[in-house]
Simulated scan of single mutants.
Amino acid sequence: MRLRVGDAALADLDANQIDARRISLYDGPIESILKDDIGTLEATTRLYGRVWTSGPQVVIRWYEAHPPDGDVGRAAG
């Protein structure tokens, strides 16, 4: 996906809470939406992953991307 360490983009973390002023995250699956282009991914790409909240900070790992053109990308490893 041509992403490098340090690359960054804005995203709506939880697609189900876009209009919320504050969001709540819980352990489990999450669907996010990119607001900016990053690497080969365009804005509005949907990212699918998992949230962990049990450590000292919230961790989200995205493992699948669904760009607007429909060409699904999956994280390696």
Rank of each mutant, 00 (worst) to 15 (best):
R4D: 14
R2V: 05
A9F: 09
D12P: 00
Y48L: 07
D27R: 12
A20R: 12
D69Q: 09
S54W: 11
R21E: 11
D12N: 12
V58Q: 01
P29Y: 07
T53W: 01
S54G: 15
A20T: 04
E42F: 07
D14A: 04
A11T: 14
S32R: 03
G73L: 13
L41N: 02
L3G: 06
T45D: 02
N16T: 14
V59M: 03
G70N: 07
H66Q: 10
R46E: 08
Y63E: 09
Q17K: 13
A8P: 00
K35M: 15
G55T: 09
S54V: 07
R61E: 13
D19C: 10
L3Y: 11
I33P: 00
V51D: 01
P56L: 07
Y48K: 02
R46I: 03
G70P: 08
A20M: 06
D71A: 10
R22Q: 10
G28C: 02
A65W: 03
A9N: 06
M1Y: 15
T40E: 14
K35Q: 15
G39R: 08
W62G: 00
G70T: 09
L13V: 15
A8Q: 12
I18K: 10
R61H: 07
M1T: 15
D12Q: 13
G49V: 03
M1L: 15
T40M: 05
